[in-house]
């Protein structure tokens, strides 16, 4: 009996190597209604038929597998998705889509407290905590704003940029005429958070500064004209 159990235990111990996410890239196209159409592409190494719970970093629903190896299945699990790997050995690369909820929302101001953002500001927030034993090789999230909006400021970007890194944690850019913010972290270890919070506003500027600037400049030129008048 022990001759049978020992190889089984050994086999189990050897096969219990933790699942490893080698690459995890998400793109979220934010819609004016506050939700986002997200597409996540991952490369995961794990045991055959192993179930891997993958957080998506947003409140989410409507998970659907878009592309992947035969036998790979998804099971929704709140703000995470359970992925059942196929029987064939990996690593496996697959893509799934989901709807990110509350991806683009006005600031929530608790009653009796002061607002920290103007009424027309929206907040884009993503927060992901790495729960896997093995580090994630490359993690990235790209959020694209609806047309007519731009990022006002990057309020939070985690983890903090290390002294040896030359790239900012969150980089702004553009794709298809829309402004994007991309969070990128390499070698994300267990327990580390990868998060970004950005404030977005309408991309059109108020004419107030233009009017005020012209009035003040005109007043100065009139009131201080003696500076350049020839004294008689």
């Amino acid at each position: 009996m022990s001759r049978l159990i020992l190889p089984l235990l050994l086999g189990a111990a050897l096969s219990a190597a933790p699942a490893e996410i080698r690459q995890y890239a998400t793109r979220v196209d934010i819609l004016p209604d506050g939700s986002g159409k997200a597409t996540a592409t991952l490369t995961v190494a794990g045991d055959p038929l192993e179930t891997v719970e993958i957080p998506v970093g947003f409140k989410a629903r409507g998970y659907a597998l878009a592309e992947g190896p035969q036998g790979l299945r998804l099971e929704p699990h709140g703000s995470a998705v359970k992925v059942i790997l196929p029987a064939a050995p990996g690593p496996h690369t697959f893509t799934f889509t989901f709807t990110a909820l509350d991806a683009f929302i006005p600031e929530a101001v608790p009653e009796g407290e002061k607002a920290k953002l103007p009424a027309n500001s929206r907040v884009v927030r993503h927060a992901f905590v790495q729960t896997f034993e093995a580090p994630i090789g490359a993690y990235s999230v790209e959020a694209a704003l609806p047309a007519g909006y731009r990022f006002q400021a990057i309020k939070e970007a985690l983890p903090k940029v290390r002294k040896t890194e030359s790239e900012p944690r969150v980089r702004l850019g553009a794709a298809g005429g829309r402004q994007t913010a991309t969070l990128r972290v390499n070698n994300l270890k267990q327990g580390d958070a990868a998060a970004m919070t950005l404030e977005a506003m309408s991309s059109s500027r108020s004419p107030l500064w233009f009017v005020a600037g012209l009035v003040i400049a005109g007043l100065y030129l009139f009131l201080f004209r003696d500076m350049v008048q020839t004294r008689r």
């Binding site: 731009r150 990022f151 006002q152 400021a153 990057i154 980089r171 702004l172 850019g173 553009a174 402004q179 506003m201 991309s203 500027r205 500064w209 233009f210 600037g213 012209l214 003040i216 400049a217 100065y220 030129l221 201080f224």
Partner: peptide, 24 residues
């Protein structure tokens, strides 16, 4: 210099935004 500074401010403020640049 005074109106010149204001003029430069207004030009830079109302220029079309660069993609990699935040409003701030």
């Amino acid at each position: 210099g005074f109106p010149g500074g204001i003029l430069l401010f207004l030009i830079l403020y109302y220029l079309p935004a660069g993609a990699g640049l935040s409003g701030a």
